[in-house]
């Protein structure tokens, strides 16, 4: 299990990086933390001709909190985001979710942007970005563009990023209003990819009645889907809403697949149970927010 050979590039600036990507496109692949990519390389399931290592782009090693959004640069490790107190203060969902991403040693190296650019349908951060209606910023020699999460993910392991584009950052907006957000998942082993995972954001009005509820999932379909659950619970008091109905609504709209760890039926059942649990918890959080 040793990777095939590749031409190696280690640009020192973002400008250099996009220049290299343009030059080698479409045969280039960006290497950031490598926690998803290097296993594929070691197993020779991927063998890009060119590897563009962005680990020197320290200008992208940041977590910025800017009022109502958290922006994460492409070289911020999961652990940097997880342990960023300012980010936690405005958007605790990030830390709460990151604690479910593999194990600390992986989070020490893996980057949040990298896992989003990898677009694994089992990747928690892809779901969170979609759930929050976040954006990804892409740079190339042709310029910079910002893409909504819903448009960014185009299928399992595929995004709208062109081969010459570098995802330089992602932005997680803080939900507006009186909201609570919760991530929960069931995994076979602690730290494994979830069999089913869901993040739920619940918004309450001033009377603590449910004004809105949205959820997103991992391992429940080819790409992260956001569901609006509001219809099942709108207007109910936060501690009296029929969250089970929200769970049923969610399960009815997801079409998971069987795999070696779980049947589709079990996944749907988990989606129902976990959605209800997470939504109830999120509502309680919103009530004290």
């Amino acid at each position: 299990m040793k990777p095939a050979g590749f031409a190696y590039h280690r640009p020192a600036t973002v400008d250099d990086a996009v220049a290299v990507l343009a030059e080698v496109s479409p045969a280039g692949k960006v290497l950031a933390g490598g926690q998803s990519l290097v296993p594929l390389l070691n197993m020779r399931l991927a063998a890009p001709e060119h590897l563009v290592d962005i680990n020197r782009l320290t200008e992208l090693a940041y977590v910025r909190v800017d009022g109502d959004e958290v922006t994460v640069g492409a070289l911020a490790r999961h652990a940097d985001v997880e342990h960023d107190d300012a980010a936690y203060a405005v958007l605790p969902l990030l830390r709460d979710t990151l604690e479910h991403v593999a194990h600390p040693t992986i989070r020490n190296r893996g980057t949040t942007v990298g896992s989003i650019a990898h677009a694994d349908p089992a990747g928690e951060l892809t779901a969170v970005l979609t759930l929050l209606g976040g954006t990804a910023t892409l740079r190339s020699m042709r310029g910079e563009r910002t893409v909504a999460a819903a448009d960014f993910f185009t299928g399992p392991l595929t995004t709208c990023a062109d081969a010459d584009e570098l995802v330089t950052s992602v932005t997680f907006p803080v939900p507006e209003g009186r909201t609570g957000a919760v991530w929960t998942e069931v995994a076979r082993r602690h730290g494994d990819y979830a069999v089913c995972g869901t993040g739920v954001v619940v918004t309450l009005d001033d009377d603590l009645r449910v004004a809105g509820a949205r959820s997103a999932y991992v391992s429940m379909g080819p790409e992260p889907a956001v569901l609006d659950l509001t219809d099942a619970v709108a207007g109910a008091m936060y501690d009296d809403a029929d969250w089970a109905a929200a769970g049923r609504l969610a399960a009815g709209r997801l079409e998971p697949d069987d795999d070696i760890h779980a049947t589709a039926a079990y996944r749907s059942h988990l989606a129902e149970v976990l959605t209800a649990r997470a939504a109830g918890d999120a509502a309680r959080r919103a009530a004290v927010a």
């Binding site: 197993m43 076979r188 082993r189 602690h190 730290g191 494994d192 070696i260 760890h261």
Partner: peptide, 16 residues
């Protein structure tokens, strides 16, 4: 063999 890796052959960690 569909699970010929430690990702998918689930040897217990300490938490299991």
């Amino acid at each position: 063999l569909l699970n010929a890796s430690f990702m998918d052959f689930l040897m217990p960690y300490s938490t299991e």
